[in-house]
C-alpha cells in the first residue's frame, strides 16, 4: 500500500515535469511566431491583408497566453514573467520560428508548414489525459482552422503564379527545409508524455503525417520534394538556439526589463 502511494507520487512528479516541459514548448512556439507575425503590422503587401495577418498574430499570442496560464496554474511564475524574463537557454521554441521574417514568400511558407505541424500536434492533444489541455486545444484547433485555410490559400496562389513569386517560393522552401528538424523533437520527456496520455502521437508519427501532407501540398503547386529533412545539430526544444533568438528576446523584453517588478 505504502509502496503504491510512493510510486504514485513519483509518477505524479514525472507527469508534472513532462507536462510543464511540453507546455513550455507550446507556449514558446506560439509566442515566438506571434511576435514575428506582429512585425508584419503595417508592412504587408496590401492593406486588407495587413488587417487579416494581424489577427493571426494575435491568435498565436493568445494561444501562448493560454499555455502560460496552464503553466502558472501548475505553480510556475506568472505568465508575464514566463514570457518576458526567461533566458534564451530556457526557451523551448523550435528554431524555425525565431528566424527573421524574410520576404512574404518565406513568411507564408514557414507559417503554412508550422500550421500543418501545429494542427497535428493539436490533434495529438484532443484526447489528452490532462483535461485543461484537452479542452483548450479543441478551442485552439477551431481557430487554427482559419489560419490553415488562410495560409494554404496564399501558399497555393503564390506557388502557382509563376514568375518572381515562384522563384521566391522556391528560395523560401530551401531556406525553411534545414530548420525543420527540431520542430518534431518532442524533447527528453516524449516517452512520459505518451505513457501518461498527455499526447497521443509521437514526434516521429507527427513528422510522418506532416511529410505526407507537405508532399501533397508541394505536389499541388508543382514543387519537388526537397529530400529528407536534415537532422539538426541543435534543438531549440532543448534551449539550443540560433543567433536569431537573442535579438528577438532583447526587443521583446526591452520595456519589461526596465523594471520587471513594476506594473506596466
Amino acid at each position: 500500500m505504502k509502496m503504491e502511494q510512493d510510486t504514485r507520487i513519483t509518477d505524479g512528479q514525472k507527469f508534472e515535469t513532462a507536462l510543464k516541459y511540453w507546455l513550455a514548448c507550446l507556449a514558446d512556439d506560439e509566442l515566438t511566431l506571434g511576435h514575428r507575425d506582429s512585425e508584419w503590422l503595417g508592412l504587408c503587401p496590401d492593406i486588407e491583408g495587413d488587417v487579416a495577418f494581424s489577427s493571426i498574430a494575435q491568435d498565436e499570442v493568445g494561444h501562448a497566453v493560454f499555455y502560460f496560464d496552464l503553466l502558472h496554474q501548475l505553480g510556475e511564475g506568472d505568465p508575464d514573467r514566463l514570457a518576458f524574463s526567461r533566458d534564451q537557454h530556457l526557451r523551448r521554441n523550435a528554431i524555425l520560428l525565431e528566424r527573421p521574417n524574410g520576404d512574404w514568400a518565406y513568411s507564408i511558407l514557414r507559417h503554412y508548414f508550422y500550421d500543418l505541424f501545429d494542427d497535428l500536434r493539436l490533434q495529438s492533444m484532443e484526447s489528452s489525459s490532462y483535461a485543461p489541455l484537452r479542452q483548450g486545444t479543441q478551442k485552439i484547433r477551431r481557430e487554427e482552422y482559419y489560419h490553415l485555410l488562410h495560409m494554404k490559400t496564399l501558399f497555393s496562389r503564390l506557388g502557382s503564379a509563376g514568375g518572381q513569386a515562384r522563384e521566391r517560393m522556391e528560395e523560401a522552401l530551401l531556406k525553411v527545409w534545414p530548420d525543420l528538424g527540431d520542430l518534431f523533437d518532442f524533447g527528453p520527456y516524449e516517452k512520459e508524455l505518451l505513457e501518461f496520455g498527455i499526447i497521443s502521437l509521437s514526434g516521429s508519427e507527427v513528422r510522418r503525417r506532416w511529410e505526407e501532407q507537405v508532399r501533397d501540398a508541394l505536389l499541388s503547386i508543382g514543387f519537388e520534394w526537397p529530400g529528407e529533412i536534415p537532422s539538426s545539430s541543435r534543438s531549440g526544444r532543448r534551449g539550443e538556439h540560433s543567433s536569431d533568438l537573442q535579438p528577438l528576446l532583447d526587443t521583446l523584453c526591452e520595456v519589461y526589463a526596465i523594471d520587471s517588478n513594476a506594473r506596466w
Binding site: 511576435h35 506582429s38 512585425e39 503590422l41 503595417g42 492593406i47 486588407e48 495587413d50 488587417v51 494581424s54 489577427s55 498574430a57 494575435q58 499570442v61 493568445g62 501562448a64 497566453v65 502560460f68 505568465p79 508575464d80 514570457a83 518576458f84 526587443t251 521583446l252 526591452e254 520595456v255 519589461y256 526596465i258 506596466w264
Partner: peptide, 29 residues
Amino acid sequence: EKEWVPKAPTLRRKLAIMAKVQDEMGHGQ
C-alpha cells in the same frame, strides 16, 4: 505605435496594442 508592438511589456499589452494598430489599418482600409 507599431514600433512598440514588439516591445509591449506584458502579454495583455502586446495583444491590445496589436489589436489597436490593426484597427488603425482597418480604418485606413
